[in-house]
Design a protein around this nucleic acid. Structure first.
Lengths: 226, 226
DNA sequence: CCCTGCTGTGACAAAACCGTAACGATTCGG
DNA sequence: CCGAATCGTTACGGTTTTGTCACAGCAGGG
């Protein structure tokens, strides 16, 4: 379930947003009324989207945003900025800084919902960009590690890229050429055992789950969806 | 999310407090029923507030409090004392020793909540600015010193910046380039052993915790979250 | 001015990683 | 059942990346 952090100091606005969003989708909503706690929550909970009002007591909204973008833990979380209509300069600054979307208050509920949904669709496919989950597999792009049934498995960068290429399209066979191109950048058809070798090493590291990588004779390999 | 340690030997009191606090805020609650485990938890988890009942089996509440204040790792954690109504002398002793607040049982839920909230608001901003805590590590931006398991470790300014850069985003790999940029201000990709050398020196000073700095081959380093 | 501690650098060692060749095993069509 | 094609497995050497060390420049304090 996607988590959404709402940062606004007016309680009824938060309430309004909550009701709007929950009407048609199932979100986990977190609220914050000031910048500091917003930053803290963003770091700890890593919501999927942040709705950030620019008018905040204490720390200004743009400052909050800058802080979000400076912290590696939060810099990839998409932010929708909210502000009173007409504050054009803020809008420009916000978008320049890399805000993902922008809405002027008062906004139409439907519009808000659509923007959030779009943003989620745009960013969610890879779950915040850091962790890819498929069945019992959990690939962490940060540490190049695979989390499988509670144990960490270290992968080399090539192994990681290879597994990622397959796991991104579970159940779909990828030709040898495709994989070679994706992982190694080869363009031509190449006669080599390199791919096989790495597949073997992967299967080895996957242990009991090694058979999740299925070879399709004459074509390539595919990752079985669980 | 603020963590709160509740120290009381009566389970239903702990329960009551938990329910009260969670009704309106999002806290992480930790419970302890005797003084010794309370001290241990306080050292290891560094809660943001401690609710300490003075009536405890074994080690007396005031003794627990004194111990908390003697340990560098816990001496700055605010403590709210709880006791049966009327034990005035205890109250005086407690406040003289430096308790941050005081409540007589039975207390009103609303009062408890307000006191906790106030205490958090009062102490959090200071902590956020100067001291970064992560697991057993406690980095003081003012003195450029690292407090690790009760012992002070002196760091040079470069070491400090480096450790800080990593510790600020625990669990997230920072590329060699990122670190070079953050700590040294380099903009280009530079072929240098400088980073490695300082990592080595850091690991050396961290002693047994040296392995908290993990190298991610081909990418950079990351600080393991505990 | 000297001493001390901090810093960056280069040389070298160690470790990790990768591709390749060689060969065995398997599959498949006839 | 046979042969060809394909895939799996193994071992090994070369390459890249990282760790370690010694040393010299440098700044600051006494």
């Amino acid at each position: 379930m996607p988590a959404i952090l709402i940062v606004d100091d007016e309680e009824d606005i938060r309430e309004l947003i909550s009701v709007t969003l929950m009407r048609e989708e199932d979100y986990k909503l977190i609220e914050a009324s000031d910048g500091l706690s917003a930053l803290r929550i963003a770091r700890d909970k890593r919501p999927d989207v942040i709705l950030l009002d620019l008018m905040l007591p204490g720390m200004d909204g743009l400052t909050v945003f800058r802080n979000l973008r400076e912290d590696a833990r939060t810099k990839s979380i998409p932010v929708i900025m909210l502000t009173a209509r007409g504050r054009l300069e803020e809008k420009i600054t916000g978008l320049e800084l890399g805000a993902d979307d922008y809405m002027a208050k008062p906004f139409s509920p439907k519009e808000l919902m659509l923007r959030v949904r779009n943003l989620l669709r745009r960013t969610n496919p890879n779950q915040g960009g850091n962790v890819i989950v498929s069945g019992p597999f959990s690939l962490d792009k940060n540490s190049l590690k695979l989390l499988l049934e509670g144990t960490e498995i270290e992968l080399t960068s090539t192994e990681f890229k290879l597994l990622l290429s397959m796991i991104e399209s579970p159940g779909i066979t990828q030709g040898r050429g495709d994989l070679l191109k994706k992982v190694w950048g080869y363009s031509d058809r190449i006669q080599t055992r390199t791919l096989d070798t790495h597949i073997k090493r992967l299967r080895e590291k996957l242990g009991a789950h090694g058979n999740s990588i299925e070879t399709v004779r004459g074509v390539g390999y595919r990752f079985l969806e669980t």
